[in-house]
Amino acid sequence: MDTPRAQSGLPTSSLILDINGIAQTVEVHPWTTLLDLLRSELELTGTKKGCDHGQCGACTVLIDGERINSCLKLAVTLDGAEITTIEGLGTPGDMHPLQRAFVEHDAFQCGYCTPGQICSAVGLINEGHAQGRDEIRELMSGNLCRCGAYTNIADAIEEVLSAQAGTPQREAAE
């Protein structure tokens, strides 16, 4: 790949990642985080950088189905992993139930923390530890929202959680 990364003379490794269902070969430095890989190299900017230190949750993606802060994951460690970002959950014309619920409940304002909130909520539902509002609040606390949409986010997740109760959960990468 004729990228600045490869040209710089600094060490790189090649790896294969399955990103939103598509296997891709990428070239990374040892220190390239998954977040930087997604946002700069792959131009998948739906995943956000809010702090770059695991302190805000805006960069949350699903790695092999688990919600993870992508800013603290070195891409090079993920060879062979399946990664689902917000772009892989739905599109404006075909939204994931959580995406629809977020719109309906106005569960965001500026929208910057939103992809992380939604990916985190997908993880939360997959984990199956949240039954009610107290659990939603506690288990979504790794996603800060400075616009203060928390109550609406809880409403949106609660709606999807109760709709899915008893029915098989939609796969993250679907």
């Binding site: 985190s120 993880g123 790794g142």
Partner: peptide
């Protein structure tokens, strides 16, 4: 401690 995302990692 931490957050669910951090605890997963």
């Amino acid at each position: 401690g931490a957050s669910p995302q951090l605890r997963n990692a």
